[in-house]
Design a protein around this nucleic acid. Structure first.
Lengths: 263, 263
DNA sequence: CGTCAAGTTGAACAGTATCAACTGATGTGG
DNA sequence: CCACATCAGTTGATACTGTTCAACTTGACG
């Protein structure tokens, strides 16, 4: 990061966007001049809540970086069932798979909240990667991590029962989302009873940031909304969670953790 | 018999290996000099049948290219169940995920047959990618395709029943294996005396090249060997397949196809 | 020929899906 | 502000898919 370059701490034009860009997974480690180059090649787009960015099977034109809001990527089956592949948080990238394989988008990208995006077309991205090899390195690392997480998911779907998968999904969703979010309580803390418990007995609460329906959770874990509802009801009776309409709060994450890890 | 063009004069040093390298997914499109550079950075390794190349959770040291034979990548769960993630055919690469994320191998790689491999360590691969940007492009494309196929698999496991998944798996396994099965100098070409299958689909037979147990198919489709056995028995009664010990022949692939695509 | 691995099949069982009926919350427009 | 429509969620009854266990058969190979 050592540069006697002419960029003072306050970026002259788009400070917040540049700062986000500097922390985005594809552009980490770039020089400030490089970030400017990236930004100049970008276009901006804004999506209303529920608006779709692109539909499954649309020709793959752009790579997107989410700046604010939240997106979800879903896949539709031939008989109308839907699978929720993942949520996209600010700083994360989507649409790259199709762009890099030169085919059509294999998923639909829909805005959960109001979203701001940056986008690059294929040739622009190609040029950027050639000009700055660090980008290609980041892309490779990101894709490799995506592959790893998908392999884990295949293993879970193949070998685990719904209850375990659901427990795992809730734990993941409760983690503070990567780097970009304000530090809400991390679940990791509750693993360590060493810390002095807050006023009451270790009743730390972990409300999920995302609004999720039972249907969403079903599509995320490969089951139906009915089964999700039953399991959540049981967990609530056991005092492990609290749940309302599109709202879930983990009360005893360790119980879920051990459930997820049991055979 | 075509024998007079087996050794093109362009490849003066290691003709068969170079030719394979030139068609391998990571190195397609490279100049001959670039291929030489790649080859010089490589080490060779040979594996006996059933020998493991690396174990899950081993530190990730090398990227491997399979030259001949066949490997399988499996993942072991905490309670001892196994998932078969994929088979590796000649010309394909494995071990890259761990190398690119700098972590441990998430899978175990085992030789199904006797195998010949080329391998590169992390720094060597890094240098090669810097020297020849085409490699990074190929890596990105390969990873993107891997992501896409894994997403498909997640969708299938989430929404389809065992019978459909098994039908799909058999159809995939019956496809001639990608690009390398072409007339390149593969060590064994004895199993393919037939040329391109003519469009006469009536009584054509499609024996699977791979030796697969019911257990393998179960681990591949996320079910048990018992369920696989029952379904195959039923299909055999219906005249759609023939099966013996570690041997399956598709007799009516269209029946399986429609089964896989039905709701 | 004996041994071992692969494969088959029945019976009991468990886990989920499916459908239907219902409750409660949210938001909207008259 | 209330009536209404809509959407999220709950729960019971039922059916079905797939698992598990056990006993058995078949095939390969020294």
């Amino acid at each position: 990061m050592v540069t006697h370059n002419e960029q003072p701490p306050e970026y002259h034009d788009h400070p917040p966007v540049l700062k986000l860009l500097a922390h985005a997974e594809f552009f980490i480690g770039l020089e400030t001049s490089g970030l400017h180059q990236v930004l100049q090649a970008a276009r901006k787009r804004r999506l209303e809540q529920q608006e779709t960015c692109f539909q499954q099977d649309d020709p793959a034109d752009f790579l997107y970086l989410l700046c604010s809001g939240r997106m979800k990527l879903t896949q539709l089956t031939a008989d109308g069932r839907q699978v929720l592949l993942r949520f996209v948080d600010p700083g994360e990238v989507f649409g790259g798979i199709a762009l890099f394989t030169g085919e059509r988008y294999p998923v639909t990208a829909e805005a959960v909240d109001e979203c701001e995006l940056l986008l690059w077309d294929g040739p622009a991205m190609q040029r950027l990667m050639e000009a700055q090899p660090g980008i290609a390195r980041n892309v490779i690392q990101h894709l490799a991590e995506l592959v790893k997480s998908l392999q884990d998911r295949v293993r879970e779907l193949s070998t685990e029962r719904v209850e375990q998968r659901l427990a795992r999904a809730l734990i993941r969703l409760a983690q503070p989302t990567g780097q970009m979010d304000a530090p809400t309580g991390s679940i990791e803390q509750s693993d360590k009873p060493s810390k002095e418990p807050p006023p009451t007995t270790s009743t730390e609460r972990f409300p999920l940031a995302i609004h999720l329906t039972r249907q969403d959770l079903g599509e995320l874990t490969g089951t139906t909304l009915y089964t999700v509802s039953r399991i959540l009801s049981r967990w609530e009776r056991d005092g492990w969670i609290e749940s309302g309409r599109e709202r879930i709060t983990l009360i005893d994450p360790t119980a879920l953790q051990s459930l997820a890890e049991d055979s």
